[in-house]
């Protein structure tokens, strides 16, 4: 399977132009900045807060931007014209993912500057990259179930609360029997990875946890998109 980087770039450039003119999507960037500004003012920000901000960025920026780009294409009937062009599904998704990734990276850099956190272990960066991939794939999967930007903004709410802010609210539910299951979610695994690395441990177990979620998301996305190849499926 060959990839035309020219076509991929064309899709990415188009999406970047669209996003920069879409106030609805741009407004979602406010959430991580707000949290970073509020919590970054404290002298000693705990790890759980740093990773809450990171996970909120992944949920509200990576996942939502990816969903929104696809949902709006469906709503405006432009996705069909893309799929009737020589651009392959891979090229289209790579182009869109490039835009969501670029905006995520910019947001993360600014937020982490505001909170004063700088990851200092390669394994944490590996976890961040895998998390980015996971949320891109999650955005693609959820976009299959949305027909418009408004639907996307509703469907992303559970992602924001559970995977974005879940770390913050864990204390409220840790006495419940199901609470232990939450700790296997990718947002918790990422935070535990950073904590392990900070304590001088390898963190590979938790990196494996994030990787497993990413692989599962990739598998789901592949199966679901292959099933939707034809209009009447």
């Amino acid at each position: 399977m060959s990839i035309s980087w020219k076509r991929t770039y064309a899709v990415a450039l188009k999406d970047m132009k669209e996003v920069t003119r879409n106030l609805f999507i741009l407004s979602t960037l406010i959430t991580p900045f707000l949290f970073a500004l509020i919590f970054g003012r404290e002298a000693d920000v705990p790890l759980v807060i740093h990773f809450m901000i990171i996970n909120i960025t992944f949920a509200t920026v990576t996942c939502f931007v990816q969903m929104a780009l696809l949902a709006e294409e469906k709503e405006r009937k432009t996705l069909r014209s893309l799929m009737l062009s020589p651009a392959s599904g891979t090229e289209i998704m790579l182009g869109k993912s490039a835009v969501a990734s670029a905006i995520t990276l910019l947001t993360l850099v600014i937020c982490l500057q505001l909170t004063g956190y700088m990851p200092d272990a390669p394994v944490i960066y590996a976890g961040l990259v895998l998390s980015l991939l996971f949320y891109l794939l999650l955005g693609m999967i959820l976009a299959l179930f949305t027909k418009s930007l408004i639907e996307a903004s509703v469907l992303v709410m559970p992602v924001i609360f559970l995977l974005g802010m879940g770390n913050l609210f864990f204390e409220l539910v840790e006495d419940y029997s199901f609470a232990f299951l939450l700790e296997y979610l990718p947002n918790f695994q990422l935070e535990y990875l950073a904590a392990a690395a900070g304590n001088g441990e390898s963190g590979l177990l938790h990196l494996g946890g994030v990787a497993a979620w990413t692989v599962a998301a990739a598998g789901c996305a592949l199966i679901l998109y292959r099933k939707r190849t034809y209009l009447d499926q």
Binding site: K14, K17, E18, N22, R76, T78, R80, S81, L84
Partner: peptide, 13 residues
């Protein structure tokens, strides 16, 4: 080349 009502334009471009 295909031109149908299901192939729209990017409105902001």
């Amino acid at each position: 080349g295909v031109m149908t009502e299901a192939t729209g334009l990017y409105q902001r471009l």
